[in-house]
């Protein structure tokens, strides 16, 4: 009986030890997450204004991205940086900062040409940077203007487009080819 009690005691300590190892391993995994780019940017780094959905940041060549108030497939709102844009009605998003970001994902090294339809105060120049390098610029007329640009997706697979302007601009549509 004493022996059985001793064996049961050892079993309890061993099982307790195994459980502790499992907890530590799970905790370590929890502190070092490896989710999708979209997940990391929305839930962990809180860089995105909205949850874009699974693969919601992916570039779809020839598809028109409209910047309406909703999120989802084909919606530009998926790509907006958190805190840098405000909704400008049904058709566009207006920048709040001098430098406002948009995020996209694609295969590393892919090259794209893009066209961005925007509007803002006449006479100001809007410059678009792709991962810190100037990719295109346009002088605004006061109506709708198109900014054409060319970019290469960096090794990380995450393309960061930054729009720099002296006063708020409103983006309406975008297309990659």
């Amino acid at each position: 009986m004493q022996k059985l009690k001793r064996t049961a005691g050892i079993f309890c300590y061993m099982l307790g030890g195994i459980l502790l190892v499992f907890y530590l391993a799970t905790l370590w995994r929890g502190l070092h997450p490896s989710p999708s780019v979209e997940y990391r940017m929305y839930y962990l780094d809180q860089q995105l204004a909205f949850w874009p959905g699974e693969n919601g940041l992916a570039i779809e060549p020839e598809a028109v991205l409209s910047f309406g108030p909703d999120c989802g497939p084909g919606q530009g709102a998926n790509h907006l940086a958190r805190g840098e844009w405000i909704c400008a009605g049904e058709t566009g998003w207006q920048s709040r900062n001098m430098d406002s970001m948009l995020y996209f994902t694609a295969r590393a090294g892919s090259q794209y040409n893009g066209a961005l339809t925007l509007c803002g105060t006449a006479g100001q120049t809007v410059t678009l940077y792709a991962d810190g390098e100037e990719a295109g610029h346009v002088l605004l007329s006061g109506g709708e203007d198109t900014l054409d640009f060319a970019c290469t997706v960096p090794d990380s697979g995450l393309l960061t487009l930054s729009l720099a302007a002296d006063s708020p601009i409103t983006i309406l549509e975008m297309m990659f080819s």
Partner: peptide, 13 residues
Amino acid sequence: MAYLDRLLGDGMA
């Protein structure tokens, strides 16, 4: 937590 790690790659999801 372990299940969420498998599902989403984030145990603290």
